[in-house]
C-alpha cells in the first residue's frame, strides 16, 4: 500500500550547514498492516509523518501510495490525497474550538457533497462507535481530554480512510483514558482500519503488527 524508498531529508541549520534527519530511509507497509514507529525526540518521526501525509514533498527518494508517485504531485493534489485517503489523530487533538462536535466531525465529509441528513446520520453512527452517543451539540471546551481524542478519532475514521496516521495519540491522556483509547484502537484494527502510529508508549506500539525504530535517520525493525 505504502512504499518509501531511499528517502533523504535535511534541514539547514543556523550555521549554514545541513542537518540530515532521514538518511536513505525505506519503509513498506502492506495492505491491512498497522505499523508503530518509535524513536527519541528529534529523531525525525514528525518529519516522516509529514512526508507520508504529503505535507512535505521537499525530499529526495521515492514515495508511492497505492503505487502512485506522491512527491511530484502538486500541492492541491496532495491536499486532496490527505482529504480522501488519510485520517489523522494527534496528541493535541487539533479540533476547531469554535465549533461543536457535530461540525468538527462533519467537516471531514465536506468534500463528498453528501446531503445534510446523511451527514447527520453518519456522524451519529460514528459517535456511537467511539462511545460519544448524543454529543453532537457539545462544544470542544465542554469535553474532557479523552472525549476530545474520541472526537478526533471519529473525525479521522468517518470518511473511511485508507490509512490512519496517529501522532502520539495517547500523549496527553491519563492512564485510564489511555487504556480506553487503546481498546478503541484495537477494535478499529479488528474492524479493518489500518494505522501508522508514532508513539513513545510501548503499550500503544504493541497493538500494531510491526514496531519500527527510527534511529540515525533510518528505520530498524524491532518486533
Amino acid at each position: 500500500m505504502l512504499e518509501l524508498n531511499g528517502i533523504v531529508k535535511g534541514f539547514s541549520t543556523n550555521g549554514g550547514n545541513v542537518r540530515t534527519v532521514l538518511e536513505e530511509l525505506s519503509l513498506t507497509v502492506g495492505a491491512k498492516e498497522s505499523v508503530a514507529i518509535v524513536g527519541r525526540s528529534g529523531s525525525g518521526k514528525s518529519t516522516l509523518l509529514k512526508i507520508i501525509s504529503g505535507m512535505d514533498n521537499d525530499f529526495l527518494g521515492e514515495y508511492l501510495f497505492n503505487k502512485e508517485e506522491m512527491r511530484r504531485k502538486s500541492s492541491d493534489k496532495r491536499a486532496r490525497f490527505r482529504r480522501e485517503k488519510l485520517g489523522f489523530i494527534t496528541q493535541r487533538f487539533d479540533l476547531l474550538d469554535d465549533r461543536n462536535v457535530y461540525e468538527n466531525i462533519a467537516i471531514a465529509l465536506s468534500h463528498l457533497g453528501l446531503p445534510k441528513s446523511e451527514k447527520k446520520q453518519k456522524v451519529a453512527e460514528i459517535l456511537g462507535y467511539v462511545g460519544l452517543h448524543g454529543y453532537e451539540k457539545k462544544f470542544i471546551g465542554q469535553l474532557s481530554g479523552g472525549e476530545m481524542q474520541r472526537v478526533s478519532i471519529a473525525r479521522a475514521i468517518i470518511k473511511k480512510p485508507a490509512l490512519i496516521i496517529a501522532d502520539e495519540p495517547t500523549g496527553s491522556l491519563d492512564e485510564e483514558t489511555r487504556d480506553d483509547i487503546l481498546s478503541l484502537f484495537k477494535q478499529m484494527m479488528e474492524d479493518g482500519h489500518q494505522f501508522i502510529i508514532v508513539t513513545h508508549d510501548k503499550d500503544v506500539s504493541k497493538i500494531c503488527d510491526r514496531i519500527l525504530k527510527l534511529y540515525r535517520g533510518t528505520l530498524i525493525n524491532v518486533s
Binding site: S75, R78, E84, D94, D97
Partner: peptide, 16 residues
Amino acid sequence: QGIYRSLSLLGVSKYK
C-alpha cells in the same frame, strides 16, 4: 495555529 493545523490535516491546501 490549532485551526491552521487542523485544516492542513483535513486536506485544505496551503493556497486555500
